[in-house]
């Protein structure tokens, strides 16, 4: 990287554009793969873009019992998720944000987004909203320690809680990066990812069945531009969680030099990896049924066990994840 501000600034803009532009497509791929696996045709790949465009032009409507919380929560949640984008190394290292943020901040920003939406869900006074809000915050509270332990497990060998530093170590070590603590940390992270992004078997993003929905129940009252912000934000969250998985588990391919060609190649690689990961989750999701809410606690306990086990094994093996 050159010493000027220009290159990091360009990379930062590139990252934002990548995530803003790509996240609806990733969602579409996921839905499509799931449909195909279940023997349906599935929506076209451009459908999420069309939906977003449609919502942006739609008339808005609010419950008369709702306050300003309902009106501003979607924008705050969107902003918090967008602010988390540069905390993930997408295609260049060192990350353009440099030393100014880490994964604990990422947890905080995800928490902020969840907090305001959960409040908005209570704002109207609908029972569904309260139910979804309570469940979502419950899951979030249980997921937070797992997230922290996962960060510790990935971060301890690199001596940093920054995703960029961890990925840089992985790129430098090459294949020697892979070892048992890393494997355990990855498994823990994948379990966490299912909970954080609200995929099956934890939450079913396609349902509107009152008794089972979690996230959908919270945003039931929304339409129009607010819904566009919420759904797009949800796309970021999916992209961020998957992007982080890729950066921590298989960082190879992220460009460490500033040449345009290599960076372009790295963009291609990361897009490919993201698509691949979404295809995998789509196939997985087509096969599993939603679990009871309280089994989520089992899943998260197991994830915590994996993360802690990773730290313990790193101690035996030395060097760590």
């Amino acid at each position: 990287m050159s010493g000027s501000f220009l290159a990091p600034a360009l990379a930062l803009v590139g990252e934002y554009l990548l995530v803003l532009g790509l996240s609806p497509l990733l969602l579409a791929v996921l839905r499509r793969v799931k449909a195909r696996t279940q023997g349906r045709i599935g929506p076209p790949l451009l459908q999420p873009y069309r939906d977003l465009w449609k919502w942006m032009g739609k008339d808005g409507i609010y419950a008369s019992s709702a306050s300003w919380i309902t009106r501003y929560a979607p924008a705050i949640s969107f902003a918090a998720l967008l602010a988390a984008v540069p905390l993930v190394p997408w295609f260049v290292l060192p990350t353009p944000l440099g030393p100014f943020g880490d994964l604990i901040l990422l947890v905080g920003l995800l928490g902020l987004s969840r907090f305001v939406i959960a409040l908005a869900a209570l704002d109207g006074g609908s029972t569904f909203g309260g139910m979804g809000s309570s469940r979502e915050m419950w899951m979030g509270a249980l997921a937070e320690p797992v997230f922290l332990l996962v960060i510790f497990a990935f971060g301890s060998p690199a001596g940093s809680t920054q995703a960029g530093a961890i990925a840089a170590r992985g790129v430098a070590l090459g294949i020697a990066y892979a070892n048992p603590p890393l494997l355990l940390a990855i498994v823990a992270y994948v379990l966490l990812l299912l909970v954080e992004t609200g995929r099956l078997p934890v939450d079913n993003p396609a349902t509107h069945l009152e008794l089972t929905m979690v996230h959908e129940a919270m945003v039931l009252e929304y339409t129009g531009r607010d819904l566009a912000l919420i759904e797009w934000g949800r796309g970021f969250k999916l992209a961020i969680m998957f992007g982080l998985l890729i950066a921590l588990a298989a960082p190879w391919g992220i460009s460490t030099s500033g040449t345009l060609l290599l960076v372009g190649l790295a963009v291609g690689i990361v897009v490919g990896k993201l698509l691949g990961a979404h295809v995998l989750v789509g196939r997985l999701e087509a096969r599993v049924a939603k679990w009871r809410l309280f089994r989520v606690a089992d899943l998260l306990t197991l994830a915590a066990v994996f993360a802690f086990g990773s730290l313990a094994l790193a101690y035996v093996i030395g060097g760590g994840a």
Binding site: W53, M56, G57, K58, D59, G60, I61, Y62, A63, S64, S65, P74, A75, F78, A79, L82, G124, G125, S126, E221, G224, R225, A228, L229, W232
Partner: peptide
């Protein structure tokens, strides 16, 4: 978010009971 909200012509906003 503000820009996204203004990408298309400002739609009407209404308040109704829950």
């Amino acid at each position: 978010a503000w820009i996204v909200r203004r990408l298309r012509r400002a739609p009407a906003v209404d308040e109704r009971p829950l």
